[in-house]
Design a protein around this nucleic acid. Structure first.
Lengths: 173, 173
DNA sequence: TATTGTTATACTCTATAACTATA
DNA sequence: TATAGTTATAGAGTATAACAATA
């Protein structure tokens, strides 16, 4: 059968019962049923990721660092002497898209491009002193505000288990 | 101190040792150290989410359904008689952005907008017969190919624990 | 010829303002 | 006046092709 092109809502509109606050027992049709959606790992994963990034941005508001920028600073600090291609590809960022991101960090004097003497095509990336200082403050904010809140919500053991499973998916799926 | 504007790479370029395959013990500088990045929940969460969506799209290639489209079909099936605003907001999709998404599903005859007789401003959403059939096939593909693979990777118990923690983050963080 | 960084460009997602038709 | 659906638009994020400098 095909659907007809008009439809009736149930005698009352969904909002009316809740707004009317009648004193008889009644179904509150306000909230929708997620149904199988709440069992879809991809769906829940995406919603959780958005919440975590949102909170990250709030925690980092004073330093104006996005998750992507923070990940670049962390990776450059841990891997001095690497060039743009190496840093970008490790983070899953395409080289063309990495240019503007680096321009931003460099304009804020957080990191610097240095022309390599061995291969004059490539730019070695380093943190400036200011970049090191900002990164240190960022790490503290993340630890004390962001990750601490996650620990509080999940518990230390669960947080570690979660990280392990997500890593497994990221690396082996 | 400020960084100098030139830099030397270590005597050999990073790729040389690996490519040269010398028989002496040697460090392979090829791969970068992720360092603290692999402990950042947000980073790992994002990478995992991308992998899961990628796999979802591969599993659904025959039906040409994106995660967002699948979630709409699931939610409309579970909540017949709801309008666009209700479905969209439940999924975290803004009303203006929901229009094109629905246009697509409607043009493929998977769902239909029905002008409500109670409130002629709103469009009730329903699945067409084809939409129901496609959704049924989609659910089977997701269960047998997508979620099954996740179960295989993590184990049933872990998969459930993962889902629970992600839900907690999505709902309470 | 191949690679690094870069520009230009396009396509998807997401976000906001404003219009129309209804209420 | 307020709301539902819509349009237009702008901004991120992501993807590919091609160019200059260098290897």
């Amino acid at each position: 059968m095909n659907v007809s092109k008009t439809a009736e809502k149930s005698s009352e509109k969904p909002g009316d019962a809740a707004k009317g606050r009648k004193d008889v027992a009644e179904v509150l049709p306000e909230a929708l049923q997620l149904g199988e959606l709440s069992e879809q790992l991809g769906y829940v994963l995406k919603r959780a990721q958005l919440k975590v990034f949102e909170n990250f941005l709030r925690c980092m508001a004073s330093l104006q660092l996005t998750p992507a920028q923070f990940s670049v600073l962390l990776l450059v600090e841990k891997n001095p002497g690497r060039n743009q291609t190496e840093i970008a590809s490790t983070l899953g960022i395409l080289r063309p898209n990495f240019v503007a991101l680096l321009d931003n960090l460099e304009s804020r004097d957080l990191c610097a491009r240095i022309r390599s003497t061995n291969d004059r095509r490539s730019h070695i990336l380093v943190l400036t002193d200011k970049g090191k200082a900002v990164l240190a403050r960022a790490k503290k904010l993340v630890a004390t505000k962001h990750e601490a809140r996650l620990n509080e919500l999940l518990g230390q053991a669960n947080r570690e288990a979660l990280l392990e499973m997500l890593s497994k998916i990221a690396n082996e799926f």
